[in-house]
Design a protein around this nucleic acid. Structure first.
Length: 478
RNA sequence: GGCGACGUACCCAAGUGGUAAGGGAGAGGUCUGCAAAACCUUUAUUCAGCGGUUCGAAUCCGCUCGUCGCCUCCA
């Protein structure tokens, strides 16, 4: 089975092979730390997390770089509005960003370079671009990239430069550029920048936005690397500009596979400040949903489709997770001895093939999740028939854990039911057991209701009474 | 104006030529003192509409309707 990705460059699914065998180098556009990131941002980061996890599942070593944009118009503007330094301001949101990554159980990338720490690298590229004639200094002392010099400009976005409706969103006179499509590599200092500037050979000023990604990706990954990702809105102009800068600088192909994630929408509508529906992770929690349910929502639709965040879709996600967790608890309760069965061995192998087949096909995670649920139902049926031995259960559990290394739903951390309960809860359970023995159902049901109020749910089965917490707890046993 | 995407059940969502996955919700049933969990059955003769190609179309082509994205610093 071959791993295939939809490459924005060709608009086709292409078989994936890394430049150097066994290692994948990928650059993932990270946050601009001027605010708390919203659940739409995390949709893209979750896609990138899924990508890196699946590459590792396939046996690749992954070197992932995610930039932290800690200087741009917004960070400067908003830090000044608060009257604090740029570093203090961006530090706050950078920290919050990493906390959110942890809450969503995203793996850490290998590098998180900050733009402010790579200005010399950017300056070097800009100097080279000027020398080669791809860049010019405007009357305003800003340095611009001349897109007319780069013959393939528009190749990623599949746009013809002449067709661009100039000035659709930016005032013509905002910058003194030769062409409206030219973009700033270096912005000359002005009073609004306050203390934020670098004294360089290019003059006093600060870097433009696009150049940081070229400089930092190539520094950590080389002039040509395997994968570059981001949200669809970055295709043009950001990623197009990165190509123009990088390839003009190095003379070799910049990125081999461009992958872009579609946006998340809320209640069927685009997130926007005016609609007041740009939720942060904190707000998701305040609505009573867990970050893991959000993660489930993310992977339950394909990354190139829009995903719709609604009350209903989040409730469905929570319930789906409960079903998976209940299944794992059920597996761990199996004590039947005996040899492992050939049927379970065959089933797990077949399902693992289906899982990989789905993920190989451009990360079809909804299909992969469907395979997971099929397995759950099939094995549940076997458990009902008392066919499953402890060894079979262990095999199934191992398979699900290996999938979950990709999906990241923390199924291996589901609290086992032999966890210690507070004494008074245990006493109540014992009391109920007595009541049931006396067939005093009123008493037994009253105790069950009482425990439910305390967040403990009871399930009576043939092997005795099982309990679980209403709110799942995760244990750190990884 | 240019380029492009999408429209599958009550909701979410796979499926790109071989006869409609999966999750949630609803209904009925098995099990259970009851409940919960689990399992079984059930809910699209049909994939926005209309034509065409084909032995065969949700899948390919054309048109129509509808929703949406990008077109210069938004994930």
């Amino acid at each position: 089975m071959a791993l295939r990705f939809f490459n924005t460059l060709s608009r086709e699914k292409e078989e994936f092979t890394p430049l150097s065998q066994g290692t994948v180098r990928m650059y993932t556009c990270g946050p601009t730390v001027y605010n708390y990131a919203h659940i739409g941002n995390y949709r893209t980061y979750a896609f990138e997390d899924l990508l890196r996890r699946y590459l590792k599942f396939k046996g690749f070593r992954v070197v992932q770089v995610m930039n932290i944009t800690d200087i741009d118009d917004k960070t400067i503007r908003d830090s000044q509005a608060e009257g604090i330094s740029l570093a203090e301001f961006t530090g706050r949101y950078t920290e919050a960003f990493f906390q959110d990554l942890d809450s969503l159980f995203m793996e850490r990338a290998e590098h998180y370079p900050r733009a402010t720490e790579h200005v010399p690298e950017m300056v070097a590229i800009i100097e080279d671009l000027m020398q080669k004639g791809y860049a010019y200094k405007g009357e305003d002392q800003c340095i611009y990239y001349d897109i007319s010099k780069f013959k393939d400009y528009g190749n990623l976005a599949h746009m013809v430069v002449e067709d661009l409706k100039i000035g659709a969103r930016v005032a013509h006179d905002e910058y003194e550029k030769e062409h409206a499509g030219d973009f700033a590599l270096w912005k000359a200092w002005d009073e609004q920048d306050g203390p934020v500037f670098w004294e360089t050979s290019l003059g006093k000023g600060r870097p433009g936005w696009h150049i940081e990604c070229s400089a930092m990706s190539m520094k950590y990954l080389g002039g040509s690397f395997d994968i570059h990702t981001g949200g669809v809105d970055n295709i043009f102009p950001h990623h197009q500009n990165e190509i123009a800068q990088s390839e003009a600088h190095t003379g070799c192909p910049f990125v081999r596979y461009w992958l872009h994630a579609e946006h998340l929408i809320v209640d069927g509508r685009k997130m926007s400040k005016s609609l007041g529906n740009t939720y942060t992770l904190r707000e998701v929690r305040e609505q009573g949903f867990s970050p893991l349910a959000l993660r489930y929502l993310y992977i339950s639709s394909h990354y190139r489709s829009r995903v719709n965040y609604t009350q209903e879709s989040m409730e469905a996600s929570e319930k789906a997770l409960v079903r998976l967790r209940d299944f794992l608890v059920r597996l761990s309760d199996i004590s039947k001895g005996g040899p492992p069965s050939k049927e379970i061995e065959g089933l797990t192998k077949a399902r693992n093939d289906s899982f990989a087949e789905a993920m190989d096909d451009d990360l079809n995670s909804p299909q992969a999740v469907a395979v997971l649920f099929e397995l759950v139902r099939e094995v549940n049926t076997d458990i009902d028939k008392e066919l499953l031995t402890r060894e079979d259960a262990s095999r199934v559990r191992d398979l699900i854990f290996s999938w979950d290394n990709v999906l990241g739903l923390q199924l291996s951390r589901v609290a086992p039911s032999d966890e210690m309960l507070p004494h008074e809860i245990e006493a109540l359970m014992e009391k109920r057991k007595e009541a049931r023995r006396r067939r005093d159902w009123n008493e037994a049901d009253a105790i069950r209701d009482e425990l439910k109020k305390r967040g403990v749910l009871l399930e009576d089965g043939p092997a005795g009474t099982r309990w679980k917490k209403a709110e799942p707890t995760l244990v750190d046993n990884k």
